[in-house]
Design a protein around this nucleic acid. Sequence first.
DNA 1: GCAAAAGTGTTAGAATTACACCCATGC
DNA 2: GCATGGGTGTAATTCTAACACTTTTGC
Lengths: 226, 226
Amino acid sequence: MGFEPMGVATDLVILTVRAGSFEVLLIRRGIAPHRGRWALPGGFVRPAEGLKAAALRELAEETGLDSDQIHLEQIATYGEPGRDPRGRVVSVAYLALVPDLPAPVAGTDAASAEWVPVAEVLADAKRLAFDHHQVLADGVERARAKLEYSPLATAFCPAEFTISELRGVYEAVWGVALDPRNFHRKATKTEGFVVPTGETTTRDGGRPAQLFRRGPATALHPPVTR
Amino acid sequence: MGFEPMGVATDLVILTVRAGSFEVLLIRRGIAPHRGRWALPGGFVRPAEGLKAAALRELAEETGLDSDQIHLEQIATYGEPGRDPRGRVVSVAYLALVPDLPAPVAGTDAASAEWVPVAEVLADAKRLAFDHHQVLADGVERARAKLEYSPLATAFCPAEFTISELRGVYEAVWGVALDPRNFHRKATKTEGFVVPTGETTTRDGGRPAQLFRRGPATALHPPVTR
DNA sequence: GCAAAAGTGTTAGAATTACACCCATGC
DNA sequence: GCATGGGTGTAATTCTAACACTTTTGC
């Protein structure tokens, strides 16, 4: 059975929230094409490697994170002829949501990697190489939408977090202010969203706040509204 | 720049609602692998062809429909090594929602095609070739979810339809009964969902019903609840 | 004490639900 | 007339949004 072989790659939209800022991990390309321009991390899928496995490998190379600590899901696949000057390359894009990394971004990859505010990158459609502006836009839109009806915001938080830290994630990703009091009720009353650890912290200042972990829910009923 | 070439294909989850039944278009495979088994329509992407263009070509071959009349969106991409015995094949799955076709399904494709109730196919995980059971399940879940917050149900209807025909789509896809009176209010009051044509029909029996067309909305606020 | 953030209570308005009821047609 | 589905009205309930107010810490 004949078919025309093509290159298959994965690209990663790695998002985090750092100090109230919603940011994406970009690399400066060290090789052609688009040498010296900013791009999403990514690379070709190896012959005996699954697509998600390839994305996990790239993610570990860039961030040092392993699969337990991160949320990774497919966004979409981009394959217009001509999107890559090297030839026909089809790219499967993945969305990774990671907590604010205590360790530096430095991975085994030699190319320089940097966290950049999402708003800044999206404001300039020509900033990124290839069709990565569209890929980023699609990934960001997916993340924003999923915060509403899934407990995914916890993926941006450390293992234990306060309700106001969780609210900070929503505010950074959506770019809106939420009522702290109503948000507190929503987060703690929504079945399975968060579970209290019994501990408290004063790291946010003011009255000590309860610490929570991610709950078992996979969907939020009712959703958190934007 | 070296990469390992792979086969790239598209598979189609073509869904419709016919006489109150939620159905998927399957073909019986005429060639190996999985010869004689049921599968989703699909085929390899041509060298200079875009992914969506390939899906549209397959769709036209199977149903005779052109792009104006149908909704087509990407579901996901499936590329585990070993999913296709012919070698490393990555398949980009597309979801197509089509109205009940007045013309027979017969296309230029020689393989026999048939509409089969979705529930029947999903009930038997071994019915379909390759990993098509998973692809179908993902496509169906996408369609069910999108009915809630998008005006996509109209994609299953002819250009002009009554509110009860629209409700029939929801009931068939979700497998639930909806209150006709509350649904009527919801559909007609939700901004941009449907627009009245001014015509009426008695084809559903009883009092004449107003005819509507799809409205300009791309999202429904508030959503239709399951 | 004062500032800051956590957390609870309350109330008005909006949306959802269930169902009573009337309308316009075919037969 | 009578059956059938179309379409409107309305009240009970639930959800949301806005904000007053109390609690517990650091300084």
